[in-house]
Nucleic acid binder design. Structure first.
Length: 431
DNA sequence: CTATAACTCTCAA
DNA sequence: CTAACGTTGAGAGTTATAG
């Protein structure tokens, strides 16, 4: 069995470039929510030393000096481009696992006689031609190695031109290559493991790969044992055919401004519940518990800190936005204290179960809003989220996320289509 | 004491 | 002018608690 891992190159920046070709060749970054940190950087921005996840305000001066373009993230656009890309990639194998917004695995059982390097180039060419997006591709006998091969493809290692096939390399070639790569690059090895392994003198992928897996299991974890087994070409991680239902659904945001009053916090919490409950209904589940948290700005060390949270049971598990909102707001009132400047809040729906088999309460007095919710979901799907919302969400804007540098809704709204002037006629307006 | 619940830590994109 | 630092989810391992 061979796995392919296909990954968009600096995906968010590439999506922006499709609709704004002037960004080609220039240093571009896309910022996280609230215009906080750099989360996607073009090659030019990376070359200038912009690091991943660095707070943008720290980079502003040098960004200005080098003419770096910074954009707020336009998730609606990236999600839409993602689903188009996944459809195109699905044409290359009947076995696809969508792993994240910008990458997927393809299972290639039965492709043994293929020239994968050539197949990879074909995939790249089609995605580029049909969508304008650049991707890199790694092929290998395990998922962990496919991720690693993708990494090499992206960096142009081993003569790769956007495609790297470990399956075609000899053992000694592969060993030589892997001894030049640091363990931090491995899928499943984060900052903590990197530090601990480095302390024991294990710094290269090859060094880790040749360490006894049983010893690693004893001294670290099963997870690391699996990783090392996979690095040796023995698959432990299968393709996931369909995404299982979520076990918990969370919604949270940092605020654009500080919030000190209960009222805007309530509006925020109601909005988070609305977002999460919609997801809950779309997978046909009901929630049995809800957690609410609020927090002051943990980065502001000179400010009074307070980060309470509370978890409340939901006596009659439900997916009704209104019922969930009333419980969450009760929780919020319980933890809210005035005199603090809040910067973030969120909720988590937990203890999820299948809505169709949930045990109804025989003596229930709750009103059944099932049909109302169905109507609300239809309206919001068609006209955009938030078109119809509960009064509790309010009209208070004080808490909303900052997005001051956002591009248009090129693909997800008629009004976002670039305006084309033909004589005096304007096309692309939705009137 | 065991089974489970609840919580903490780590990782990923 | 100043201050300014993401979101969502899973799983393993550990600790607390119930029975």
């Amino acid at each position: 069995m061979t796995f392919a891992l296909i990954d968009g190159n600096n995906f968010y920046v590439s999506c922006e470039r499709v609709f704004n070709p002037k960004l080609e060749g220039r240093p571009v970054v896309v910022l996280s929510n609230n215009d906080g940190c750099a989360v996607s950087r073009s090659a030019e921005a990376r070359a200038l030393g912009i690091k991943m996840a660095v707070p943008w305000f720290q980079m502003k001066d040098m960004a200005k000096k080098h003419g770096i373009v910074a954009l707020s993230s336009n998730y609606a656009l990236y999600a839409d481009m993602s689903s188009r890309m996944m459809s195109v990639l699905a044409q290359f194998s009947p076995d696809q696992e969508i792993y994240s917004i910008d990458e997927c695995f393809l299972g290639l059982a039965g492709f043994e006689h293929y020239d994968l390097a050539a197949y990879g180039q074909e995939i790249r060419a089609r995605v580029r031609k049909w969508l304008g997006l650049p991707v890199s591709i790694g092929f290998a006998p395990t998922k962990t190695l496919a991720k690693m091969a993708n990494n090499c493809a992206k960096k142009g290692l081993a003569g790769a031109n956007g495609v790297c096939d470990f399956g075609r390399m000899s053992e000694s070639e592969l060993s030589r290559l892997l001894s030049t790569i640091g363990i931090r690059e491995i899928w499943g090895v984060g900052a903590q493991l990197t530090k601990q392994l480095t302390d024991r003198g294990i710094t290269s992928v090859e060094a880790l790969r040749t360490t006894d897996a049983k010893v690693l299991r004893r001294e670290f974890s099963v997870v690391l044992e699996r990783t090392v087994t996979e690095l040796n070409g023995i698959p432990c991680i299968d393709m996931e055919e369909s995404a299982p239902d979520k076990q918990q659904i969370m919604s949270s945001r940092s605020f654009g401004d500080y919030v000190t009053e209960l009222e805007p916090l309530s509006a925020a919490v109601a909005s988070f519940i609305a977002i999460a409950a919609e997801k809950l209904r779309s997978q046909g589940s009901v929630a049995g518990m809800v957690n609410v948290f609020i927090r002051t700005n943990t980065f502001a060390e000179n400010q009074k800190q307070y980060q309470p949270s509370v978890t409340l049971p939901i006596p009659e598990p439900t997916s009704d936005t209104l019922a969930l909102t009333s419980i969450a707001l009760k929780g919020l009132r319980g933890i809210f204290k005035s005199g603090y400047s809040y910067k973030k809040a969120g909720i988590t729906l937990m203890d999820l179960s299948d809505g169709s088999t949930a045990q109804p309460d025989m003596f229930s007095t709750a009103r059944d809003n099932t049909k109302l919710m169905a109507v609300m979901d239809r309206i919001n799907t068609q006209w955009g989220r938030g078109t119809l919302h509960s009064a509790a969400e309010g009209i208070s804007n004080g808490w909303k996320t900052k997005r001051e540098r956002m591009s248009q809704e090129f693909t997800t709204s008629w009004s976002g289509l670039p305006v084309v002037r033909v004589g005096s006629v304007r096309a692309g307006s939705n009137g």
